[in-house]
């Protein structure tokens, strides 16, 4: 079984703050991490390999420093790591990202592709399904458990609004995973040693044999027009007085709203 896991390097959004004066993101000392959902995707890939044999390849598209992310994946136990990096890929939206990743995955070869449900910087959850479309293979999104897998088929639990579906798909397939699916393993000592020395393969625009109008900014149908700080309500009333008086006013508000 040939498994490819797509991982993305993201800023740790829990640490990101806004500077209210300039309306810009304060990134001082904000670390870059593997997108948390992608750790679960890696774990899912590694578990299947343990079951069926084969190889797991981690793939990321990003700047040269995204290599760190791949070394972490190697420390967790993946066999191979590929970095897709080229200035031509700058400004990619989800369409262009998915297209570029799909071209690379085709080169690498695959039976199952794992992605995270979404990346925490953009939260779009689009790259996985779009990639599957470019590869002309089925996908199953929001997977919270893998029930069965063979070389021909996979059966999973897919989260829905009010529960879950049990879904079966032929292989090849692309699966996006939610956190409930597993507990990602920690890197082993041996893994860390291997990660230090491992060679990371690099692929650039030329290797993908595609048209420059399909990647990067030129290949991106969407554009970011502007970014701004979330707007806040202004018409607010502060309820003052002793706790008794405050409760009295609250009852008044509830009555006025016909909540009583």
């Amino acid at each position: 079984m040939k498994i490819v896991v797509c991982i993305k390097q993201v800023p740790d959004t829990a640490e990101v703050r806004i500077n209210p004066e300039t309306n810009t993101l304060v990134r001082d000392g904000v670390p870059s991490i593997i997108n948390p959902y992608d750790l679960h995707a890696l774990e899912a890939g590694l578990q299947i390999k343990e079951l069926t044999g084969g190889t797991v390849t981690a793939l990321t598209m990003g700047p040269p420093q995204a290599e760190d992310t791949l070394r972490e994946a190697i420390a967790m136990g993946v066999d191979d790591a590929v970095l897709l990096t080229d200035r031509a890929f700058a400004g990619s939206d989800t369409w262009a990202t998915a297209y570029t990743l799909a071209r690379a995955v085709k080169k690498i070869g695959f039976d199952i592709i794992f992605c995270g449900k979404q990346a925490i910087d953009g939260d779009t959850a689009q790259v996985g399904p779009e990639m599957a479309e470019f590869l002309d293979i089925p996908h199953i999104a929001y997977v919270k458990a893998i029930d069965e897998v063979s070389t021909e088929r996979i059966r999973v639990k897919r989260m829905m609004e009010e529960g879950y579906d049990i879904v079966e798909s032929p292989i090849p397939v692309l699966v996006t995973v939610v956190k409930e699916i597993n507990e990602p393993r920690l890197p082993s000592l041996k893994g860390k040693m291997r990660a230090k020395k491992a060679e990371i393969k690099r692929l650039g625009f030329d290797a993908l044999e595609t048209d420059e109008h399909l990647v990067g900014l030129k290949g991106s149908p969407t554009q970011v027009k502007d970014i701004f700080a979330p707007e806040m309500k202004k018409d607010r009333k502060v309820l003052k007085g002793s706790p008794e008086e405050i409760v009295e006013q609250l009852i008044g508000v509830l009555k006025e709203m016909k909540c009583l």
């Binding site: 369409w95 297209y99 689009q126 991106s220 149908p221």
Partner: peptide
């Protein structure tokens, strides 16, 4: 932006080569 919409809409956008903005 439900599990259904977020699953199949991206494929439609991919096939039509057009943009899709989530959420």
């Amino acid at each position: 932006a439900t599990p259904i919409g977020r699953s199949f809409f991206p494929r439609v956008a991919a096939r039509l080569k057009t943009g899709l903005t989530a959420d």
